[in-house]
Design a protein around this nucleic acid. Structure first.
Lengths: 145, 145
DNA sequence: CCGTATCCTCCACGATACTG
DNA sequence: CAGTATCGTGGAGGATACGG
């Protein structure tokens, strides 16, 4: 029996984490956004055990984030390419990356060690498409109340 | 010895996940954004075991996302309130929430089960503050290349 | 080069009982 | 109400060997 199963949850955050919440998933997506498609590209870049990479790749294909595309008949070889759904996850990763950089900017030690080239964006904001307004926690509070 | 320790990683995504990557962390943040501050508010809302809630709360305080604030001397009682760092995580959660709703909008069964009130935003976009442009994967590709 | 198979470890999480 | 204490488990992740 699975510990956490939120595939039936009504909360979009829980459902989202159900799809990409495993630790390596986001890292694999990051590499995919950077152009990786081959098994060993992911493997070397992430320094991940091959067995667990196989598993993560499989669940992500199942979740519709990646597509397994045959590029060689014999021996059978596959590319793992982002689906539309996977590509649409980009803003989330960008937001996370931007948040971390913002947070670490205040820590002297961390600043020197952060490699911006592995980040995806510098300074991001989330806006409401309808109004064009920046979505902040304070706005959220007002709207919600 | 810890399995995954990316506190020294140079990748902002890995570092970010190191701070909020545990499954319940984001759910706790969600509740905090919705106004929860007391132990049992989180506990009942999330239906989480008290022991693990204690641990998650402690690590999140340690990570600087929450602040433990004494509101009663005897017996000693605490509020868990968002720090500035915690509040600044809001856009990430908003982006994740928006992504999930977008993804599930195409699934008939899911559509009926999603409760928008537990999401944080209807239709969001992530933009670059400097240019005001919407951040998409395709733009990223062009900029990167 | 692209994985699969196997075995192992550890810790996040679950359940429950209990206390000031 | 606001937790602490204890015990148990499954699965994510690790290491390595092997195969087409």
């Amino acid at each position: 029996v699975k510990h956490k199963d939120f595939s039936q949850s009504t909360c979009p955050i829980a459902r989202g984490l159900d799809l990409v919440g495993e630790w390596w998933s986001m890292m694999i997506l990051r590499d995919a956004f950077f152009g990786a498609t081959r098994f060993d590209q992911f493997q070397k870049s992430l320094d991940i055990a091959p067995g667990i990479l196989t598993r993560r790749l499989a669940t992500m294909v199942e979740a519709g984030l990646l597509e397994r595309r045959l590029y060689s008949q014999k021996p059978p070889r596959h590319d793992y390419v982002l689906t539309e759904r996977g590509r649409s996850f980009f803003p989330v990763l960008a937001a996370l990356s931007a948040w971390t950089e913002e947070v670490l900017a205040n820590e002297d030690v961390a600043r020197a060690t952060i490699d911006r080239s592995t980040g995806v964006a510098a300074d991001l904001a989330v806006v409401d498409r309808a109004t064009g307004k920046v979505v902040s926690f304070d706005d959220f509070l007002f709207d919600g109340a």
